[in-house]
Design a protein around this nucleic acid. Structure first.
Lengths: 221, 221
DNA sequence: ATTAAAAGTTTGATTAGTCAAACTTATTTG
DNA sequence: CAAATAAGTTTGACTAATCAAACTTTTAAT
């Protein structure tokens, strides 16, 4: 079994590879993400490379191997099942659960994970709308687009919030923009740097382009 | 915060001090308990002593300080709340939960612990009958005596099983001797090395003296 | 009261994970 | 394109936790 530290590196690499267009991660960003120096990250990458969890040539990009990917999905599954449990069963605040899950995800055995998953009714997404990989590592992502790309008068349903920042999540929740909420796009500013939406029984909310970019929606047919 | 390793040393020391008549623990037993060499245990004791968590002179007994005791009770609380959750909510087997709780107890924040405790209705004992210290570190142990000290025809209620061994717990459960079960002591062998008991709606079970010594009971008035 | 055994300590080495700082390679940008 | 900057690597040192093996002290036994 990978150590807690290794799991954290793998998880961070998974996220970085996702959001980078090349599909590869860099040492400096990785180090930032984990709060270590870049030298530390380099030496860890060397270890992961030796263990065949990542593919990395000196002075070039880093990518997960199939083996590394499997670990990433496993950690992600544990993380998201725990988040769901903390919100649904223990009534923890939406905005707080990320940090808590971060600590617990490494201590969960396969057996407990499965019991927890069963107890929760095998949820397909966590409270942020992030898909929960199944035990085999399959992820089914709902087709969606950023709210930022919507046009005026479109009716949409929020699918996912792509940000774990506590302040942002608190704002999103207070505006009634949690996953599952139905919205109408009121208006889009001419320069496209903000848009106003209204939840079914809520007040109109104006969002910056960057905020609307982190909210994924599907169009209601 | 103490590291996971430190928490484990403290917890083991707490148990050893309890069961020793002098109230002090020794390095060799401690090392055995934790699966490390005695040299390792010695050097850790030195560190704990420096951190004022234990009181220890070279070549003599080890005792927890007030500070060390507080940590021990905190870990014990986390351990026992988790065990209760695993058995009551996730339906894990009585005999398996100890090892699982061992891994989880170090990853539980105070906030989650309290929510879990609340969710479970603030239980006073875990599934083995071990008392759960409250958040302030108070433990209320039910007055009880070992089943081994009972006489024939006494009616008793099982309060606590003082052993985490899986095989023993499986045997105890299969014999219907879980905490809360009511028994009649049928007979006590002349040499006192075994005794036969019968649960209310169960078959008679014969227990060795050592097994009966690990089962704590209270007399039904 | 010696001496053998058990308990406890010390020493030197190892692995995981980390940092600071010097260094090298790649990428920008004037 | 050359110089500046950013990205990545290496080196030497450190802490936590561990082991094996030599060593010392205490305890038990003859």
């Amino acid at each position: 079994m990978a150590t807690e530290t290794v799991e954290n590196y793998i998880k961070a690499l998974y996220a970085l590879c996702r959001e980078s267009p090349s599909g590869e991660a860099g040492v400096v960003r990785l180090a930032q993400e984990l709060g270590v120096t870049k030298g530390t990250a380099t030496s860890m990458i060397k270890r992961l490379s030796l263990a065949r969890l990542v593919k990395a040539e000196p002075y070039s990009g880093i990518a997960l191997t199939a083996k590394g990917n499997k670990i990433a999905l496993d950690v992600l599954r544990r993380h998201r099942v725990i988040e769901t449990f903390l919100v649904r069963t223990l009534n923890l605040d939406w905005a707080d659960v990320h940090e808590e899950a971060e600590r617990l995800e490494h201590a969960l055995s396969a057996r407990i994970l499965d019991r927890l998953d069963e107890f929760l009714g095998r949820p397909s997404t966590d409270p942020h709308g992030d898909p929960i990989p199944d035990a085999a590592g399959n992820v089914s992502e709902t087709r969606s687009k950023p709210l930022a790309k919507c046009r005026a008068r479109e009716r949409v349903c929020i699918v996912r919030i792509m940000d774990q920042n506590r302040a942002f999540l608190k704002f999103v929740a207070e505006s009634g923009l949690k996953p599952g909420a139905n919205l109408v796009v009121h208006s889009v500013s001419t320069q496209g740097n903000s848009l106003t939406v209204q939840a079914v029984r809520g007040k109109p909310v104006t969002l910056s382009h960057s905020a609307a970019g982190k909210i994924l929606v599907k169009i209601i047919s």
